[in-house]
Amino acid sequence: MSENDLAQNDGQRFDRLPATPADREVEGRASREEVVDWWQDRFAVPPETFEDVTFWEKGSGKIWAFSADLPSPVRVEGLGITLLRTRQEHWKPTTTGVKRFGRDATENVIDLEPGEAAAFATGHDQQLDRWDGDWGYLIAAHELAGEREPIGVGLYLHGELRSRVPKGYQEDLAVLE
């Protein structure tokens, strides 16, 4: 593989994210530092949460997290979990990423009542005027066995929480009142 091939984004391989923006060789590619900082800035997820995680890009802006180290690039179909979508105006966490790392979030998490959580998990949008935090992508969570459990990603705009739970993740939650 030539240097020129490695300096371009390729949707058929995983490339490890550069450590810092200064190490970037592919224009537009996020760095490890930027990904960790984004999770900390948006959701207050401590940087040490990602200490043993490597980050990879496959395709244009699809960031994956992997709990091991491999040489880069790697030509495989999947590597770890999808974490984040970049290369768009607003970065978007994935449902899988939120379910895995959202337990450590302390900001921009909306705690849903049982009926709200059930509606959200099945993909329904709902009016929720009580949120007084940032607009944009939030972690929707509910209480399960006395702990906060992330359900998925919501988009909060103009008093409405829009469920961004993909069809394959939608589920019926038992509502216990």
Rank of each mutant, 00 (worst) to 15 (best):
Y156G: 09
T94Q: 01
S72G: 08
T106S: 09
G80W: 13
R130L: 04
V153S: 01
G136P: 07
R75G: 00
A30I: 03
T106F: 14
I81N: 04
R13V: 06
K167T: 10
P21W: 07
R87W: 14
V175D: 12
D15W: 11
N9Q: 12
I151T: 05
L112I: 09
A119H: 04
G78F: 05
G28C: 10
G11A: 10
L173M: 01
G152T: 00
I139M: 13
E177V: 12
L83W: 03
A119I: 07
P114F: 13
P46C: 00
D172G: 13
D104H: 11
K99Q: 14
L157H: 06
E89N: 14
E107R: 15
E77Y: 09
T94M: 01
E57I: 02
E89Y: 08
G78W: 00
D69K: 09
D104A: 14
G59T: 14
A117L: 02
L157S: 15
E147F: 03
T49M: 00
Q12H: 15
D10A: 05
L79F: 08
P73N: 02
P114A: 05
Y169Q: 11
D69W: 11
S31C: 08
F14C: 09
R164W: 07
T122P: 01
L70W: 12
P47Y: 06
H90F: 08
R162N: 09
R103E: 14
G59S: 08
W91L: 08
H90A: 12
P166M: 04
T82S: 03
W64Q: 14
D5I: 06
H124V: 13
Q170M: 01
M1C: 01
Q8K: 15
F120S: 08
T96M: 04
Y156V: 11
P93R: 06
T106H: 08
H142Y: 06
L6I: 07
A119T: 07
Q127N: 03
A105W: 00
F101H: 14
A22P: 01
E116Y: 03
I110G: 07
F66G: 05
P46V: 03
T54C: 02
N108H: 09
P47A: 11
S31P: 04
G154P: 03
E113M: 10
V76T: 12
E116F: 12
A7H: 13
R32C: 13
P114K: 04
K92E: 06
E34L: 05
S60M: 07
G115R: 08
V53Y: 03
D69N: 10
L70Q: 08
W56F: 02
E107T: 12
T49F: 02
G133C: 13
I110H: 07
D134K: 12
D129N: 13
Y137N: 09
E25W: 08
D10C: 15
R42S: 02
D23F: 02
